[in-house]
Amino acid sequence: MSEVSVNTPKGHVEVKNFSLAYETIEGAVQAVTDTQIHVKPGEFVSIVGPSGCGKSTLLNAVAGFLKPTTGIVTVDGERVNGPSAERGMVFQQYSLFPWKTVRENVEFGLKMRGMPRSQRERAARTLLGLAGLEAFEKHYPERLSGGMKQRVGIVRALATGPKVLLLDEPFGALDAQTRVIMQQILTNMWQRLKISVLFVTHDIDEAIFLSDRVYCMTARPGSIKAEIPIPLERPRQQSMMMSSEFLALRRGLMSLIREESLKAMGGEISDMGLQGLNIELHGHSLADVI
């Protein structure tokens, strides 16, 4: 267990002067531009923004899957050039290996590191126990619910003792109740393991509830529009989501995102134009009436 419960916080993520452009036939398309973010060791940071703003692109660059066009990504001062087990990742799509049992999935990172079978089996069992999944160790992922799959995904990413955990809308496909439970589980694990977390979501409540700090991104080309510290005390309870403090933060973030979403959709929605209009269809199609 020594590789998992490390008590000195580590995982200082720094993204400096970052931009990323895709090459297309019409020229370069800027996905993310002029972005600086950082995650302090042991900090929980979220990135929110309208869809298509490049928040996942940014996360994938931190993971090492994408190379920045300009700028640099470092973790604890070391430059990122490619994926590594130092930065565990949880994907929005369930990314468990269907041909491996739950335990074999969790063992995967340890196996890649060359840990002997009996040792990694024991480590995987312990971790699955922490996540309340020991009864399912021999199941294949196909038989698990969405929430369980994602719990295994998180445990798998944590098994190798990464410095940073990167999550790309991990709970987006889950129902509301499951999502709340998953947020609680993630918070617990984060507090126990004291690792840095960079969390991408479009759910504002989720971002506020989980994070120490939230970055809000602009519409494409994405850059950081605002950085909002979340001073809510921990441990956080579900009931906090009704507090005036939480709601104030929510209102602030909402209006920031709304502005950007409208920009992303190509300007103000023209519901003004419909105001004077009063159509009664009475079974006719709109084309008939107009």
Partner: peptide, 21 residues
Amino acid sequence: DPVLVRAAQCLGARERSIFRE
């Protein structure tokens, strides 16, 4: 599924392991 390949990569898998696993 490319996501599975990426998942393996950020669990420390190299080319040969990715091929096999």
